[in-house]
Computed example of a mutant assay.
Amino acid sequence: MAITLFKYLDFNGGLAMLEHHNLQFTNATKFNDPFDCHPALFDYSHVPERPHNWPPADFLSSKGENDMKNLRNSIWMCCLSKVFDSLLMWAYYNNHKGICIGLNKDAVLKCCQHMFLGMMYPFAGEVKYKDILQKPDYFKDHPSWDDLLLTKAQAWEHEQEVRIITKDPVWIHAGRDIPDEFKKDEVVDWKEIRHYVPLSSDCFESVFLGVNMLPSNKTKIIDIAKKLNPNIDIYQMTLDPEALRLKGEPVKV
């Protein structure tokens, strides 16, 4: 059974994604949650016994933390959601004036992997939310990348996030964008560079229009979406006052 994942965007971001039919990957250090992919998610204090206590325990602890820091610096990911009707997610993106794009998970992964030349094939992972963190022991628990890249605080659970993750990306014929504020600089922080991976039209399954989207913006989105994929499903988000929730009503085009 096909799995659909959803990308929430403001109007301009959504229009650009449909026009360029691509997916943005961002460095793991650039997200709005300061705990995201942070080396502090691990416990480096339980250094195992070594002959003659060499190398020193503080060296091994620092090395472990630096290894996880370097891993974080080398990871780029795209954040998606399992749901299209989150009130909070819609509120984040332009007060319900944005859009939500439904993407076929398998088709997206196929495009990403086909375009990739880097250290690790892109893969999809589901975020795990925790209220009290029992830190994995870096030396004894053999923590996996999932512990670093797919652990978030319970406060973010409403996002129901799924991430497409890759390491040291090199994309074939894909775009890279240096933010305008850095273009004047001689030296650019490479972690500020966002990678854009082209997607095939079959990746785009549906578009959901925000409750408060302007009529003129709706017309623009519908036109570009139908040009991209004539079979794409368009929905207008509406209010369900009986349940205090959102629902999508099909738009006939």
Rank of each mutant, 00 (worst) to 15 (best):
N12V: 10
N12Q: 15
N12W: 10
G13N: 05
A16F: 10
M17W: 01
M17A: 15
L18C: 06
E19M: 08
E19I: 10
H21R: 11
N22S: 15
N22Y: 04
N22E: 11
L23E: 07
L23F: 05
Q24V: 12
Q24L: 14
F25T: 04
F25I: 00
F25W: 07
T26G: 01
T26L: 02
T26F: 00
T29H: 05
K30I: 04
F31H: 13
P34Q: 02
F35K: 10
C37I: 02
C37M: 12
H38S: 14
P39N: 05
L41K: 14
Y44P: 01
S45G: 02
P48Y: 07
P48D: 07
E49T: 13
R50C: 11
R50L: 13
R50A: 13
P51N: 10
W54D: 13
P55F: 13
P55H: 07
P56S: 15
A57W: 11
D58L: 11
D58Q: 13
F59P: 02
F59G: 04
F59R: 13
S62Y: 05
S62F: 06
K63D: 11
G64V: 03
N66C: 06
N66D: 14
D67F: 03
D67Y: 03
K69G: 07
N70C: 05
N70L: 10
R72F: 01
N73R: 14
S74P: 00
S74I: 00
S74A: 08
S74V: 00
I75M: 01
I75L: 00
I75E: 00
